[in-house]
């Protein structure tokens, strides 16, 4: 938290995809965190989220002055950092929509798809979220755009 007594009001502060070992597979920062801070956050988020019981605990956990909304898919944690005043259930659905898009795009997506095709994953992310806001709600439309992007190569 900045010591000036001010903070930025926005929707999503960052998005992380990490595996169970804590390796980050994708990170997107909507707040200008410095490098050292990013590294710290990645570690803290992994320790916090990875240690939670995914069957008996909610998918929300308070982190610093924010709240993390996360979902686990097989060995991957998809994690969003949002304001504590925000609608957590909304972001939970948004994560799921994004994963469904990846799943259709790669055809049963797995961790390796994300590792080797991170450029495509980032493109997909930019089609769904922009400046921390949700941008599109139709999976079909996003998938159409992604295919056109690939064709344009």
């Amino acid at each position: 938290m900045p010591s000036t007594g001010c903070f930025v009001i926005m929707a999503i502060h960052f998005i992380l995809i990490q595996n169970r070992q804590g390796k980050t597979r994708l990170s997107k920062w909507y707040d200008p965190f410095p490098d050292s801070e990013r590294r710290k956050i990645k570690g803290e988020v992994h320790r916090l989220v990875g240690s939670r019981d995914y069957r008996f605990q909610s998918n929300f956990v308070d982190y610093r002055e924010y709240r993390l909304v996360y979902r686990r898919y097989a060995g991957l944690f998809f994690c969003m950092c949002v304001d504590t005043q925000d609608n957590e259930l909304f972001y939970l659905e948004a994560i799921h929509m994004f994963v469904e898009i990846l799943d259709t795009f790669f055809g049963n997506v797995c961790e390796l798809d994300i590792v080797f095709n991170f450029v495509k994953v980032y493109t997909a992310l930019d089609e769904v979220f922009l400046d921390g806001e949700l941008e599109e709600t139709s999976k079909k439309k996003v998938l159409g755009r992604l295919e056109e992007f690939e064709r344009a190569q």
């Binding site: 929509m97 139709s138 079909k140």
Partner: peptide, 20 residues
Amino acid sequence: SPTFDVQGVPDPFLQTRLIR
């Protein structure tokens, strides 16, 4: 509506944002 339906709720994202 097949494009925007999520588990039987019509475009919950847009509904949520508009309520917001």
